[in-house]
Nucleic acid binder design. Structure first.
Lengths: 131, 131
DNA sequence: TTAATTGCAAACGGTTTGCCACGTT
DNA sequence: AACGTGGCAAACCGTTTGCAATTAA
């Protein structure tokens, strides 16, 4: 249970940076592919290990949603995901109505909500245009 | 793409019945364990195959949430899950405010929401009592 | 009899882990 | 020097799948 003291690592820093820059919610494989130029010897195991460390430190969030593979995103606090059913892309949304929501649950069940994960499904503009 | 005509199967019927009776959101393994008395030769593959069929027919919903393994539930239409952070149990909630929510998203992004998956996290009464 | 379903076991595929060389402090 | 980190490959484990034998219709 003793805390392990972290050291810097180029790989970890770049993973975090990629997650910061992208609008996407990447999979481990995507990060791996996008770092291979920079680190020709990079291994998937390293990507996963660092993602684990970043999640544990609270900097990154694991979505482990949907399909077979996990997705990761920079931790921006609670927000809402809009998932397009045809292209699979995930969009971040800020929906202030979330709080009313949590209040409604408190009233209905007496349970206080301390966090959420909300995914709304539909078809994004782009896909709707090309349908 | 040709439709396959289903036949009845005791195994499938019992799986569906178990899902109907339980308040839980079982894993495939749980269903398997609970049916072994009745079907000593039952295999996990059969459970998965039938769950797939039931999901496809819309009778059952796959939650494929959280951890490593999938969870399944009878399809009762859109509703909200309250997940207890300490015991891991999942409770079903009806929160009518969901619709306002979807309207807010339509207004904000122009995207129509056709479904959702909402999980609220907190601590259930029972766990709070024994803390 | 026809074809869906089952049990069994092997295959799959994303993730985790053990081992040892390498890098950071 | 001490010890966290990386690369590599094997292990893991929930899920899927091929196949021959059963079983529903």
């Amino acid at each position: 249970m003793t805390e392990k003291k972290l050291r810097r690592s180029r790989q970890r820093e770049r993973i975090l940076e990629l997650l910061r820059r992208t609008e996407q919610h990447p999979t481990a494989a995507w990060l791996y592919d996008n770092l291979r130029d920079e680190f020709p010897r990079l291994s998937l195991g390293t990507v996963y290990r660092n993602l684990g460390i970043l999640v544990e430190s609270g900097k990154v969030r694991k979505l482990d949603s949907g399909s077979t593979f996990d997705r990761f995103e920079i931790n921006r606090g609670d927000h809402v995901h809009f998932v397009c059913r045809s292209c699979g892309r995930i969009f971040d949304l800020d929906v202030p109505e979330t709080e009313e929501f949590q209040r409604a649950v408190l009233k209905q069940t007496g349970n206080r909500v301390t966090g959420h994960r909300i995914e709304l499904y539909g078809e994004c503009e782009q896909c709707r245009a090309s349908a």
